[in-house]
Design a protein around this nucleic acid. Sequence first.
DNA 1: AGTTTAATGTGAACAATGTTAACATATAGA
DNA 2: TCTATATGTTAACATTGTTCACATTAAACT
Lengths: 219, 219
Amino acid sequence: MIKHEYHHGNLKEEFITIAMDFIAKEDVEKLTLKVLSDATGTSRSAIYKHFKNKDALIETIIEKGFEKFDVATTPYLHDKNKALIDRFYLTGKLYVEFAKNNPNLYRLLFGKKYAHIREELLSIKDEDCSGFAALQTTVEDGQKQGILKKEDSYRQAIVIWATMHGLSSLIIDGFMDVEESYEEIYNTLFETLLAGMVANKVKIISTIPLLNKLLQPKN
Amino acid sequence: MIKHEYHHGNLKEEFITIAMDFIAKEDVEKLTLKVLSDATGTSRSAIYKHFKNKDALIETIIEKGFEKFDVATTPYLHDKNKALIDRFYLTGKLYVEFAKNNPNLYRLLFGKKYAHIREELLSIKDEDCSGFAALQTTVEDGQKQGILKKEDSYRQAIVIWATMHGLSSLIIDGFMDVEESYEEIYNTLFETLLAGMVANKVKIISTIPLLNKLLQPKN
DNA sequence: AGTTTAATGTGAACAATGTTAACATATAGA
DNA sequence: TCTATATGTTAACATTGTTCACATTAAACT
């Protein structure tokens, strides 16, 4: 005989999964506790046995979200088989694509609303946001290799991040035509950015044809 | 004898003023109808005689906000007395400073949450967001003057906007040290951006020393 | 096994919020 | 003056996050 189990078993995991799936489709603002209780067939207050409050659930979502973000965006960043310039290009592209494919999650991770949770989370882990340190290190590698101009690496990394974050935000917050190809814009953005950052005398070859002209020696 | 006036007089204007002042200090999320009724000494539902609902008030705030934004950011954009490159530099700086000085308003104007209101508003006025068309026109002027590379002006304008929006967002959403001087970062950003956009053969002189080296002929 | 203890879920209740409807009062114009 | 309209009030409602007392199950310990 089928009996509704009073004890659910893995309710906490289910809350997290449902919340992640919800954010894949709708904004986190619309994620209400009723959505979660209905989806799990539990009472309105069941969630409080697993999370201190709604913010604690959001915190978990942000944690999972950053993991997902890291997995999605970093595969090329440390790929020693690729030219450094290609690693920048591909990683930036993955960054924008992540935002494009996960707009609600991206906003949750990099928006202001839950900044306090993000900061607490990242300070505990002694990490920075979105692997910024890794970006800065890569910039420094580029300087050592003579590819990038030797300026303050922190500021250069910020410039790169701001650029990618800006494009991502414009795309997902409704400032560009949906049907518009973001790739052309990304290429223009990357070309412009890199053209402003590459050192003048350099003769690295990229496997990405678009980038080769940026790498031809000038002067 | 002092008598509390049943009819307030200019309650609508007062709601708007209070809301604008509130957003100058706190996020729009915290702007509740109770805040407005308390501040005006009226009942909770008085506002409904002047606005269809809360969103209608927000719409007015966004409208006023864009006016404020335009006033704050465009004084140099069409200043024919200045070199075009200086107009870019100064306008960009005002853009970032507006965001920095009005973080909650900036987020309201350029965030996702009220994108539907923004779009409705700007489509009625047949305007674009944040004078984007003006930016694009200025880019085209720069191309005609031989200062900027001749590429698709729409994409170039997007690149400029994305860059400024990205830096602004990183600053106001908590990704940069508060005490940090944003000016150095802005200069690095602008130098990088423009270095990637200026044509090679050019001999314009900027009144801004920082920019002159960007404008020296190359090749 | 049986008993206790902790974990897990329920239902009722609360305050805050946006909203509506019925009612009250002031203002303006005939 | 009288009446229609504009403007404001009070009461009520649904939704939301939250808490608390209570119920039930699972786990731990004799």
